[in-house]
């Protein structure tokens, strides 16, 4: 019988694809840079080089993230995925800032770009490779549910657009030279580099910011919050009250903690059975979750006790709905 691929296998496939395609891209762009003295291609190479470094880190991070919890890290290693996301954002911002400064210098002292046709063809083929890689990695991110792989897919798509716009800039430059505006054509390359640098700052900043917030124990997404409440609603007649609902995300793993008040006179065994059912339902509903329910006994200070009525939750119907 064939084994079903696990999320870890999808993640490994995505990181390996990212690693190998990045090596090819870096080699193509480095060779092109030897012939075409284009700042835009230099930026593109810088981005791919950063991508290659991140792919290496991602490959080892994913292996680390998949390790089970141990004595040193009781909640597992899931957060390393967010570290990777943040790192990717920071590296890209760094490249964008450095290249923007270089573009300003080049705008003041513009150079002629050699062999623009080669530059255009290289950028166009790199763009195609980037989009194909983005498509594959995104498919793997959906199958694995990994935020780091999703961030990698977004990065790849962004790189695809960058290479496409650089190849468009080469076309404009060649067109201007053909129309005898070669002086103007010299400005196209640094201008394209500047626009690309500015364009990558915004998504990179967003990526880094989101990763930092996830590192600060951000709550699970709205859809999972709704699932938690749907199940608390489904079991509403099985407990007295619920208190704090605390959730946090660590990579693909979601941690949910809920305090539930149970009837004062219900046995520990019954209460536990009841809450175990709720816990199992929640873990089935919220993918990759680890649910902890804190059982708190009712202090007999509720309105039912004040009126001398029997606690209605002692009757224990599973649910009304």
């Amino acid at each position: 019988m064939m084994n079903m691929p696990t999320p870890e296998m999808y993640m490994k496939r995505a990181t390996l694809a990212s690693l190998y395609i990045n090596i090819v891209l870096v080699l193509i762009k480095m060779s092109a840079l030897v012939f075409v003295n284009s700042l835009a291609i230099a930026i593109d190479l810088g981005i791919s080089f950063a991508g290659l470094m991140v792919s290496f880190i991602l490959y080892y991070s994913i292996r680390l993230a998949s390790r089970p919890a141990d004595m040193a890290h009781n909640y597992g290693y899931g957060k390393v995925e967010h570290v990777c996301e943040a790192l990717e954002g920071i590296v890209l911002i760094g490249i964008a800032v450095a290249m923007s400064l270089q573009s300003f210098v080049k705008l003041l002292h513009p150079d002629e770009v050699k062999l623009p046709l080669v530059g255009m063809l290289v950028s166009m083929s790199c763009s195609g490779l980037n989009f194909a890689g983005a498509y594959y990695i995104f498919k793997m991110s959906v199958k694995s549910g990994s935020p780091a792989i999703k961030a990698e897919a977004l990065h790849w798509r962004m790189e695809g657009f960058i290479s496409a716009s650089i190849s468009a800039a080469f076309i404009v430059s060649m067109e201007l030279t053909y129309l005898s505006f070669s002086d103007l054509a010299h400005y196209v390359d640094p201008l394209a580099a500047l626009v690309v640098s500015v364009l990558i700052v915004f998504p990179s900043f967003k990526l880094a910011k989101e990763a930092f917030f996830k590192l600060l124990d951000s709550s699970v997404e709205e859809e999972s919050q709704m699932e938690i409440l749907r199940h608390l609603g489904r079991h509403i007649h099985s407990y007295c009250e619920f208190g704090n609902i605390r959730t946090r995300v660590a990579g693909r793993k979601k941690f949910v903690e809920i305090s539930v008040i149970m009837p004062h006179d219900m046995s520990l065994r019954q209460s536990h059975r009841m809450l175990l059912r709720l816990k199992n339902d929640l873990e089935r509903a919220v993918e990759n979750s680890d649910v902890t329910i804190h059982m708190v006994p009712c202090g007999k200070d509720c309105d039912f006790s004040a009126r001398g009525e029997m606690c209605p939750y002692m009757r224990l119907p599973d649910s009304l709905f």
Binding site: E222, Q225, M226, I228, L229, L232, G233, I236, E241
Partner: peptide, 20 residues
Amino acid sequence: VSSAGIRVLIIAYKKALKTG
């Protein structure tokens, strides 16, 4: 209505049950 609003509605229901 977000999940935070739904939470308040469930709490409201529970409290109302207690107070009749």
